[in-house]
Amino acid sequence: MTDQQQEQSLDPAQIEVDVRTGLGAPSADVTEGRQNSLWSDAWGQLRRNPLFWIGSFLGVFFVLMAIFPSWFARGADPRACSLTESKQPPSSAHWMGFDQQGCDYLANVVYGARTSLTIGLLSVIGVLLLGVIIGAVAGYYGGIADSLLARLTDIFFALPLILGALILLRVGPSTGLPILSDRGAGAVAIALSAFGWMTAMRLVRSQVIAVKSQDYVAAARAMGASNFRILTRHILPNAVAPVLVYSTITVGVLIAAEATLTYLGVGLQRPAISWGLQIENGQSLLRTAPHLVLFPSIILSLTVMAFIMLGDALRDALDPRQRS
């Protein structure tokens, strides 16, 4: 669109503004509602994706469950147990039956959401912090810093997430470090972030390298912006989209990893309530009371699925080449 075209279509409000500014070159804003930015395009794409709606419905449902468990527990208290009800199968009054201790199982599963989501979110924040900082430094400064950090990443990549976290949590209590030694949600989140940041780092690093050579970065430098300002204000905001997608998917993966660690006996300990613990306790009773494994597993799978679906939908929406 040329400037002439802009000047042809007049709009009274516009002329008034121009008179005030003394320029007398009225133009209507013909761009409104016609051109789209990356994010408005992405939203248009998301809206039409059923995966996004299923994912966000489930996501909101489980987040609400984590914040207000009493809304979903049908009035039952997860810690009010009566051994006479032990291993009762599901009934119309108690939808998920009772566990071995005779506690209402629905209430237990519902109250487990908070632990799982907290650990999932905390460890994804840890993964992002490590990944973005290390990746941005490596990508922006290049040279020796890049070589060293890239090798460090390779070393961590060689360690499987579960194995690394398992070892860290196993030795955790003997280290005497504040959060790590108490085997709570914080310790699990630290262990998962410490061995899960590498993919995020590689993503950020490659994005930063790509954005670094853009003209607007040179322009910012020519206008006297400092390295820190260029990196935080100009490069990172343009590099986050793929990292955002990755982290959404990772929330699901990390929630599953937490359940795995707890199942293996190094994650959370009773009396904490978590899906991993419930599955671990239920497995020995699988033949007599299969519902004790079934219900937390289904809910865990649905939660993981919700985040992965959201991430997938987001990735499709942000990548124009994926659009049909």
Binding site: T2, D3, Q5, Q6, Q14, V17, L23, A25, S27
Partner: peptide
């Protein structure tokens, strides 16, 4: 205003892709 972008007060919150080539160069 000084680089003669019409309706500056209204366009100050617009993004670069919403401007024409000549207007973008004026922003620069």
């Amino acid at each position: 205003d000084r680089v003669r972008i019409p309706a500056a007060a209204r366009r100050v919150n617009d993004y670069p892709h919403q401007f024409s080539g000549g207007m973008r160069q004026r922003v620069m």
